[in-house]
Simulated scan of single mutants.
Amino acid sequence: MNRTIAYRGYEICVELTPTSKDMFDVKFHIAGLAGPMGRLGIGKPTQIRNGPFSRRWAYLVAEIAGQVAIDVILGLPDASVRSVPAISDGGPQRRASDAV
């Protein structure tokens, strides 16, 4: 069973392979318009691990994985970028007056 999902000018192509009654292994690949060529993963089938899955779960997991792959290649859309506080390297900062 195959399904194609459009996302940000690309297509996420999902392929389900039956493993047992109502359970499926799932692969996806990215196809679409000319974009950043030479990037790994474009057009190559990727197996989703930790299966088999139910049909609905398989499609959902593959769609989300495909969206993440496209976001990694293109970068996040501007609307979804949020300010994230930086993590310091040394843990909590101490002042000289805190010394024991």
Rank of each mutant, 00 (worst) to 15 (best):
N2T: 15
R3G: 11
R3V: 11
T4H: 06
T4R: 10
T4M: 07
I5N: 12
I5Q: 14
I5P: 03
I5C: 07
R8W: 15
G9L: 06
G9V: 13
Y10H: 15
Y10G: 02
C13F: 09
C13Q: 14
C13S: 10
V14D: 01
V14M: 10
E15W: 00
E15S: 08
L16S: 05
T17D: 04
T17Y: 10
P18E: 14
P18R: 08
P18T: 13
P18G: 10
S20L: 05
K21D: 15
F24P: 00
D25S: 13
D25K: 00
V26Q: 04
V26C: 13
K27Q: 15
F28R: 06
F28P: 05
F28T: 10
H29T: 03
H29E: 02
I30Y: 12
G32Q: 13
G32N: 05
L33N: 08
A34D: 08
A34M: 06
P36H: 05
P36E: 11
G38H: 05
R39P: 00
R39V: 15
R39L: 03
L40S: 12
G41Y: 05
G41A: 06
I42K: 01
I42P: 03
I42F: 09
G43S: 05
K44D: 01
P45Y: 14
T46R: 02
T46I: 11
Q47G: 08
I48L: 07
I48F: 11
I48T: 14
I48C: 07
R49L: 08
N50T: 14
N50A: 11
G51H: 07
P52V: 09
P52N: 14
P52D: 13
F53P: 03
S54V: 09
S54T: 15
S54A: 12
S54N: 01
S54C: 07
R55W: 07
R55E: 10
R56Q: 14
W57P: 02
W57F: 15
W57L: 12
A58D: 04
A58G: 06
A58F: 08
L60S: 15
E63D: 13
I64D: 06
A65C: 01
A65L: 01
A65R: 06
G66V: 07
Q67I: 04
V68C: 01
V68F: 05
V68H: 01
V68D: 02
A69V: 11
I70S: 05
I70V: 13
D71C: 02
D71H: 13
V72K: 01
V72I: 02
V72L: 02
V72P: 00
V72N: 09
I73F: 05
L74M: 01
L74K: 03
G75W: 07
L76Q: 14
L76C: 14
P77T: 12
D78M: 00
S80G: 03
R82E: 09
R82K: 15
R82Y: 09
S83G: 06
S83T: 12
V84N: 06
A86H: 04
I87Q: 10
I87M: 11
S88Y: 08
D89R: 00
G90R: 04
G90P: 01
G90M: 13
G91V: 08
P92W: 03
P92T: 07
Q93D: 09
R94L: 09
R94K: 13
R95L: 14
S97Y: 07
D98K: 00
D98Q: 09
A99L: 09
V100N: 11
V100D: 04
